[in-house]
């Protein structure tokens, strides 16, 4: 059983995974409550284009994914504020546009040397030693920012107009929120994969919401589900040699189904 810790790559994956699991619900709870789930999907596809650029130019793909996602997040926010197109249209332009770019780049370089599937669905073997440092640094930055501005984000999510009248700079907080989403999505891409990141952010929160508790308690429950699913998923991924993104999200989904069933019976 403990032989697992003889492999450096799984220790790296668990370290990075735990950081991501801890920070994901802090962002996810706002994504869910503000009906912004599609933003996570869009930014993760943008990150894939970033990964493709990084692999092509031989730069660490987390860095290029981060750059692409931050740039896209700010552009989406601008496009939405301009009111020239619908907010959701802005998202789909970026989602399909960046996916198209990623596919072109990948096929141009004949699939690179890495397995594209790893970036689509997540894999524990993709996490390199430097990645853990990058993920660590970025998740600390995102985590600290989220903790500092948590209350303001909560007020804005609950009642944007009243928050604005009370003197909160809504545009500033919305941009900050978009950048934080970009950071967290960029660091999650290796372990969870582009296609499953939004599930990582959203599923534990949706499950926690079923308990109908206070905001603080809901977040705490989401954190527990997130961390538990991350560890369970990574272990399954290791022992059965399957995609980690898939195992993590399936664990979360199982908990969601069990919770809903339990709620149904107990009501």
């Amino acid at each position: 059983m403990w032989s697992i810790f003889n492999y450096d790559f799984i220790i790296r994956a668990i370290e990075a995974g735990l950081l991501i699991a801890l920070i994901a619900p802090m962002l996810g709870i706002f994504l869910v409550l503000r009906r912004y789930s599609l933003i996570a999907d869009t930014l993760s596809h943008v990150s894939l284009a970033g990964v493709a650029i990084g692999l092509l130019l031989n730069i660490n793909p987390i860095i290029t994914a981060l750059g692409a996602a931050v740039l896209a997040s700010l552009s989406i926010e601008r496009l939405r504020l301009s009111k020239k197109i619908y907010g959701e249209s802005a998202l789909s332009i970026f989602l399909s546009g960046s996916l198209a770019l990623a596919i072109v780049l990948i096929s141009y370089s004949h699939g690179f040397n890495v397995n594209l599937l790893n970036y689509l669905f997540g894999s524990i073997v993709t996490v390199r030693p430097t990645d853990v440092y990058i993920i660590g640094l970025l998740s600390i930055i995102a985590g600290v920012l989220l903790m500092i501005f948590f209350r303001q984000l909560l007020f804005i999510s609950f009642d944007e107009e009243a928050a604005q009248v009370s003197g909160l700079k809504i545009k500033l907080y919305n941009s900050l929120f978009m950048v934080l989403s970009a950071i967290i999505i960029a660091i999650s891409i290796e372990i969870v994969g582009v296609l499953l990141i939004s599930a990582l952010l959203v599923l534990p929160v949706i499950t926690a919401l079923q308990f109908k508790k206070s905001f603080k308690l809901t977040l705490l429950i989401a954190e527990l589900i997130s961390v538990f699913s991350m560890i369970t998923g990574l272990l399954f991924s290791f022992y059965f040699n399957i995609s980690s993104g898939g195992t993590i999200v399936l664990t979360m989904l199982t908990i969601f189904i069990l919770t809903t069933l339990f709620k149904k019976i107990s009501d």
Binding site: L33, L154, F158, D159, E161, S166, L209, K213, S214
Partner: peptide
């Protein structure tokens, strides 16, 4: 809009009132 807020929003009365201090 305050009246038409999301009824599933997970916040207690105290948490909502505390927003007035934010």
């Amino acid at each position: 809009r305050a009246i038409n807020f999301d009824f599933l929003f997970p916040a207690t009365v105290t948490e909502v009132v505390a927003m007035g201090r934010y």
